[in-house]
């Protein structure tokens, strides 16, 4: 059981490093290509979209890693509700972030993208606090 947990943790760290590496390489490449080979505006948009994609990948996977039931403090119902809520909020926020960078006018793309992600983060935090309060009242 412990070996499985160690293997899972190692896999997660490996995946994180790969995603981080791909993200940094993509950003570096886009910077290098701009402005000679790639339009500066397009490079900026793509950098934002790549950042949104990384956030999207992580947010999408949030509900897929529930805590083990054997862990003493784990209330499986609340844990599941929290993870699903946070996962949905952040996934939609990341999607909005990506879309804003790709399609909004470049002057307002960054601000709009941050609005999407910030709102989703605040909603996720408020939701988690709400679920914890509801759970402690029972």
């Amino acid at each position: 059981m412990k070996t499985d947990q160690i293997r899972d943790a190692q896999g997660e760290i490996g995946r994180g490093l790969i995603i981080g590496g791909v993200f940094l390489t993509a950003v570096k490449m886009l910077s290098a290509l701009s402005p000679e080979y790639l339009d500066a505006e397009l490079a900026r948009r793509l950098q934002g979209a790549v950042a949104g994609m990384v956030s999207f990948i992580y947010a999408n996977a949030v509900p897929k890693s529930p805590l083990p039931l054997s862990r003493g403090a784990c209330d499986p119902k609340a844990d599941q509700a929290r993870r699903r809520f946070v996962g949905w909020c952040l996934t939609l926020g990341s999607l909005g972030y990506m879309m804003a960078w790709l399609f909004a006018p470049i002057e307002s793309a960054g601000g709009l993208a941050m609005c999407f992600l910030g709102t989703s983060l605040l909603t996720a935090m408020a939701g988690v606090i709400g679920i914890i309060r509801l759970d402690s009242q029972r």
């Binding site: 996977a61 509900p63 897929k64 529930p66 083990p68 039931l69 699903r84 996962g87 949905w88 996934t91």
Partner: peptide, 24 residues
């Protein structure tokens, strides 16, 4: 399909959802 997770505690098997947002 890795959509649910089974955990055995004592003699009971508890099934839990293990779906990503896209899968949902």
């Amino acid at each position: 399909a890795d959509l649910i997770q089974a955990e055995k505690i004592g003699r009971t098997i508890t099934y839990r959802l293990k779906m990503s947002v896209l899968e949902e």
